[in-house]
Amino acid sequence: MKLPHNIGRLEALSDGVFAFAATLMVVSLDLNESWLDLPDKGLNLISFAVSFFVLIGLWVVHYNYFRRSGGYVDYVIIAYNTLLLFVVLYYVFPLKSLINSWLGKERITMEGLADLFQWYSLGFLLIFLCISLMYRRASKKTKNISRALNLLFYSRHFAIYALLSAVSILIAFLGIGIQYGLPGFIYILLGPLCYYHALHFNKKYPNTQQ
């Protein structure tokens, strides 16, 4: 007997993991002493704030998937979602170290910074690859043509994020422009790439609404 999947439980688990990731970030602040008395506590607050809002941004992307997918869930979706949540738990920590190095709080060599960029981009790649594959899976399973095209659009949209992060990993691996933060600044290309993808997709499927 095939039992229906409960999307509510999947969303509840996901929200719990995001909340746990935020808790780990707070614990890592190390506020045993009054941060008002120590100058570097202000830098801790900045790196925490950036990491926190990136985490919230990822939660919004994840939340929007479930709004757009029409409630479709199967074991493939669950597998992609599980991998995504696994990566999210660790994703904020290389990001925090990267921010601290930019703020001068953590001393790091060029080789260490290149490794940090690679870890950051690997987390970015895995998260958005999972999101893209979830959209693609849902687009293939929905019987509503308009919704299927909408899901296909977002599958390709987030695939751009994954591809650009792969380029960032390659640049960091080759050591190109590390001192200038090139592996990070390359993400600026997300704006124009996603814009031109939307133009092309809407031209090919004019009745699609994003």
Score class of each variant (00 low, 15 high):
97 S>C: 12
85 L>G: 08
137 R>I: 01
74 D>L: 09
122 L>N: 10
164 L>Y: 01
125 L>Q: 14
89 L>E: 02
174 L>Y: 04
80 Y>T: 00
149 L>W: 02
49 A>D: 05
139 S>E: 01
64 N>A: 03
185 F>N: 10
35 W>T: 07
9 R>Y: 10
179 Q>G: 04
127 I>M: 13
208 T>A: 05
90 Y>G: 13
162 A>W: 13
131 I>M: 11
75 Y>E: 15
161 Y>E: 00
188 I>M: 11
196 Y>S: 06
89 L>D: 01
56 I>V: 14
6 N>G: 06
151 L>F: 05
76 V>Q: 09
56 I>Y: 13
146 S>I: 12
7 I>Q: 05
140 K>R: 12
16 G>P: 01
133 L>Y: 15
186 I>L: 15
31 L>K: 04
46 I>R: 11
138 A>L: 02
11 E>H: 06
194 C>I: 06
19 A>V: 09
5 H>E: 12
196 Y>L: 06
71 G>S: 07
189 L>M: 12
117 F>N: 14
24 L>F: 06
19 A>R: 02
153 F>K: 12
128 F>G: 04
111 E>V: 14
56 I>E: 08
100 N>S: 12
42 G>V: 02
206 P>I: 08
130 C>F: 06
116 L>G: 07
125 L>T: 08
169 I>G: 09
58 L>Q: 12
47 S>L: 07
18 F>H: 10
187 Y>A: 14
14 S>V: 13
23 T>S: 12
45 L>F: 14
42 G>Q: 13
7 I>G: 00
157 H>A: 01
106 E>C: 02
162 A>T: 07
65 Y>M: 04
209 Q>E: 15
24 L>K: 11
134 M>C: 13
180 Y>S: 04
204 K>Q: 09
125 L>E: 09
140 K>E: 03
42 G>F: 14
3 L>I: 11
181 G>I: 04
44 N>L: 12
148 A>W: 09
135 Y>A: 01
156 R>I: 02
106 E>R: 01
82 T>C: 06
140 K>L: 13
66 F>M: 04
118 Q>M: 15
65 Y>D: 00
144 N>C: 03
4 P>F: 00
207 N>R: 06
3 L>A: 15
62 H>S: 14
41 K>Q: 15
200 H>K: 10
75 Y>R: 08
82 T>Y: 05
145 I>N: 08
66 F>G: 04
118 Q>K: 06
113 L>M: 11
144 N>L: 09
195 Y>V: 10
144 N>I: 13
169 I>E: 14
31 L>R: 10
112 G>C: 09
141 K>Q: 09
138 A>P: 13
199 L>T: 00
129 L>G: 04
87 V>N: 08
82 T>V: 01
195 Y>R: 08
82 T>D: 00
